[in-house]
Amino acid sequence: MVLIGVLALQGDFAEHKAKLASLGAQTIEIRQLKDLEKPLDGLVLPGGESTVQGKLLADLGLLEPLRERIQHGLPVLATCAGLILLAENVENQAKRYLGTLPVTVKRNAYGRQLGSFTSLLDFADLGQVAATFIRAPYISEVEDEVEILSKHQGKIVAARYRNQIGLSFHPEVDESDSIHSYFLKICQTK
């Protein structure tokens, strides 16, 4: 059985845990440094508020250990705010957090929370998936080695770089478990 760490400082971590558990994965909430002592097979960075999550990661001493784990191949699924945490660059923001995903992200690109929506997307080898966008960013630039997994109206909303998957949307709130299954397969083959 795979063990997936889910960052549980703020945001929708409970929904990710439930989705992963329904697929047979074991999960552990990552809230402090000692939680990283477990032999993780993967990591989820959930949606929420990237500024709050980034500050808490730094304050709790989690930023560097997580960055090192990701750089050494720990598979990671980052959704919405998690994508912002992973991005090397964020438009109109000097602050960067983990900075391991070679992309540039535009924050709140789809407007305010009231402007949330769901759309069907063509997603890599998975076919069509439902995608819920909530104050979502999009990826405005990618480096050459980044694989684009999905676009919405011409904007990149899902990308993969080696062991990292960054999504603009929230697969944990939709019925389908296809993206979490896709991620777990990566974790099982790492």
Rank of each mutant, 00 (worst) to 15 (best):
L36A: 11
I30H: 00
D41G: 03
L56N: 02
L40W: 05
G48K: 02
G42K: 07
V52T: 15
A58V: 13
K34F: 11
Q32V: 07
E49W: 07
R31M: 05
V52M: 05
P46H: 02
A58I: 12
G48D: 03
S50D: 11
G61D: 12
R31C: 08
I30V: 08
E49F: 04
L56W: 06
K38C: 09
E37L: 13
K55H: 09
S50M: 08
L43P: 10
L56P: 02
V52L: 04
A58L: 14
L36Y: 00
Q53A: 13
Q32D: 15
G54P: 07
L45E: 08
L33N: 09
G47H: 03
L36E: 04
D35I: 01
L62W: 03
G47Y: 01
P39S: 15
P39L: 11
L43I: 05
D41F: 01
Q32P: 08
K55T: 12
A58D: 13
K55M: 11
P39K: 14
T51L: 04
S50T: 10
T51Y: 06
L40E: 03
L36Q: 03
K38P: 03
I30F: 03
E49M: 06
L43F: 06
R31D: 09
L60G: 05
K34W: 06
L57G: 12
I30P: 00
L60D: 04
G61M: 09
A58W: 11
S50Y: 12
V44K: 00
P46E: 04
L40K: 02
V44L: 00
V52S: 11
L57T: 08
D59L: 11
S50C: 08
L33I: 14
P46W: 01
G47Q: 04
R31E: 12
L60Y: 13
L60V: 07
L45R: 07
Q53C: 14
E49A: 07
V52F: 02
G48A: 06
D59V: 08
K55F: 10
K38T: 12
P39Q: 14
Q53G: 06
R31N: 07
L45T: 08
G61E: 10
Q32S: 14
E37S: 15
V52P: 00
G42S: 10
S50L: 08
A58Y: 13
K38Q: 15
S50K: 10
P46T: 00
G61Y: 11
P46I: 00
L57F: 08
L40S: 06
